[in-house]
């Protein structure tokens, strides 16, 4: 792990520890828990899309597998939540292998459509397999897990729990990126032929990172089920898969921090919009929650047209600029710290 990634991770840990002291409102804490759940799925997706260069518009399906696996095994079969989570994770791995081996031979548009089709099938099954999934009415009475003997009952506890998992996820992702395997993944993104000529089993590597991203998504789904205590097919239609891609793309595809930024920003966007809508009403504009979809679409389009690297690089540039501004002394005139800091950042992260 590179120095500033460790620094970022420590900053994140501190922020997570402090946040519940600042935000005492359970509603906003809940929003941050959902942000954490989306972040987890997005970190996995970012490794698949940003680092290995393989698109998937079907990861909502793996979240659904995690959620339904955990929901069914705990609520209907009274398994321990941990065991249920592990078993649904294994199921996600198996599905990722079965889907990934044929699908990852496809490229670009074809891969995108195949994964989207897969997500659609999973959604149809979740609605139609009433005996297993409860159909449209879903599954209720999913328990919270216990950790070290404590039931994760309050939102504050669950907030710490979810974000601890997110931090572990980021930690693993950074370790992987700067390893033999991670370099292999980035290499096949750059040139599949060259990667193969250096001995990297290209297809197997794509399948491996697909599996890994499915694991992240599945854990996110399990934790979601345990948090809300009931699940139905509603949240897992293909627009959720599209939303995950949107989060990663808006934040910045080529960087784990970007995916995290995108996930947090877009997860909190509805809260922000409902907050803003009070002010808009003051100006005579009636904003309804139904317009959220439109706003998401416009943000995504704007980012793709004007900031194709996502908002994170710009954000980082701005932060570096501010730091440079503070460091600026009359003699050095900021030239040393500003641009060089910026260059060092952009050189490493890709």
């Amino acid at each position: 792990m590179k120095g500033k990634n460790s620094a970022g991770l420590i900053a994140l840990i501190l922020a997570v520890i402090l946040l519940p002291y600042i935000i005492t409102n359970d509603y906003y804490l809940g929003a941050l828990i959902f942000a954490g759940l989306n972040s987890l799925a997005c970190i996995g997706l970012c490794m698949l899309m940003g680092y290995a260069g393989q698109i998937s518009i079907g990861h909502g399906a793996f979240v659904a597998i995690g959620a339904y696996g955990s929901g069914i095994l705990t609520a209907s079969f009274a398994w321990s939540p941990w065991l249920a989570m592990f078993c649904s994770l294994i199921m996600a791995v198996v599905v990722a292998i079965v889907l990934g081996i044929p699908a990852l031979r496809l490229k670009g548009h074809y891969l995108a459509m195949a994964t989207l089709g897969f997500a659609s099938i999973v959604h149809v099954v979740s609605v139609a397999a009433v005996d297993l999934t409860g159909g449209p009415s879903g599954i209720v009475n999913i328990p919270r897990p216990k950790l070290f003997g404590y039931l994760l009952q309050t939102d504050t506890q669950y907030f710490y729990f979810v974000w601890a998992v997110v931090i572990i996820g980021i930690y693993c992702a950074f370790n992987l990126i700067d390893s033999r395997v991670g370099r292999g993944l980035r290499a096949l993104h750059g040139s599949e032929d060259a990667a193969a000529s250096l001995g990297i089993p290209v297809t197997w590597y794509k399948v491996q990172v697909f599996i890994l991203s499915a694991v992240y998504a599945s854990v996110s789904g399990s934790l979601y089920a345990y948090y809300v205590n009931y699940i139905d097919p509603g949240p897992f239609d293909i627009s959720y898969s599209v939303l995950l891609v949107t989060m990663v793309a808006v934040g910045g595809l080529h960087n784990i921090w970007g995916a995290l930024t995108g996930a947090i920003v877009l997860s909190l966007l509805p809260e922000f919009l409902s907050f803003v809508s009070d002010y808009l009403r003051f100006f005579g504009i009636e904003y309804q929650q139904d317009y959220d979809t439109l706003v998401y679409g416009l943000i995504l389009l704007f980012i793709m047209l004007f900031l194709p690297e996502g908002i994170f690089p710009s954000l980082r540039g701005a932060v570096a600029g501010i730091i440079a501004l503070f460091k600026k002394t009359p003699r050095m005139s900021g030239q040393n710290s500003g641009p060089i800091a910026g260059r060092r950042f952009s050189g490493h992260d890709k």
Partner: peptide
């Protein structure tokens, strides 16, 4: 066919 998204050293490390 180099890996344009990686540093020169990382390219060789892939080797």
């Amino acid at each position: 066919q180099i890996f344009p998204n990686m540093s020169v050293l990382e390219n060789i490390m892939v080797g």
